[in-house]
Computed example of a mutant assay.
Amino acid sequence: MNKKFVLGIYDDEDVLLTAIENVRAAGTKIYEVFTPYPIHGIDDVLGIKRSRLPIVAFMCGLFGTCFALWMQIYMLGFDWPMIIGGKPHLAIPSFIPVTFELTVLCAAFGMVITFFIVTNLKPTLKVRMLDKRSTDDKFVMAIEVKEGTTDLAALSKLLRSNGAIEVNEKEVVK
């Protein structure tokens, strides 16, 4: 299945941000914007919602805390109770280092695994490179062309009127 894109190439991030606002205000859906470095505020301009990854991190960290406390209380209090240094079986203050480490470990692994699942990243992933200059010094706004519904001339004119230095069409084999 082939997808067709119209690419607006920009060489200034402020012009790009203004162009994104104007293109979205004109009712055109932007497929993706590629930049050589992160741009502050571009997520808000593109209308991308805030990530729920911190919620996942909190839940995984909470699981790690509960698991660490349960494991230590069970092992040292019920399974194999021993008196170590005169401390009671359930010496909660001595459980803090292990609990902290397991909380951080579960939160970190949980975030990484969730990120890979949500973004569909896998070792066999082939990255679509629409324009190689987006990794160097240009900003690329990609708009997907739907057959029969997108007017290419009007779209090209819209991008040029909003500061695009170059407008290209690209077909990508999926």
Rank of each mutant, 00 (worst) to 15 (best):
A108C: 01
V118W: 04
D43F: 06
K138I: 10
L76A: 11
I73Y: 15
T149G: 01
G77Q: 11
F78K: 13
T114W: 09
T150L: 02
F100K: 02
M111R: 02
T135A: 14
M111F: 02
K87Y: 05
F78P: 10
P93F: 03
V56M: 11
I73C: 08
L102A: 04
M75T: 12
K49F: 00
R52A: 05
I83F: 07
T119I: 02
K87N: 05
S94E: 13
G110Y: 07
P88K: 14
E144M: 13
V98W: 04
A57V: 11
L125S: 00
L105E: 07
F58Q: 12
F58R: 11
I113W: 01
D136C: 08
V56N: 09
W70K: 01
L69Y: 12
P88G: 13
H40C: 05
Y74L: 15
L76K: 14
G86L: 03
F115C: 04
T119A: 03
G86R: 08
F95Q: 03
I39K: 00
M141R: 03
A142F: 01
W80H: 14
A68T: 08
P97K: 03
T124M: 08
G77T: 07
I73K: 04
F67R: 04
S134G: 04
L46S: 06
D44V: 12
K132A: 14
E144G: 00
K49S: 09
L102F: 15
G47L: 09
L69N: 04
G41Y: 02
I84W: 02
D137K: 13
W70D: 05
A142S: 14
I117N: 06
F116A: 13
V118R: 10
M59P: 06
M82S: 11
A107I: 00
S51L: 07
V118T: 11
I92N: 06
M111P: 00
I83C: 07
L121A: 05
I55S: 01
L121T: 12
F115A: 09
L90V: 13
L62E: 09
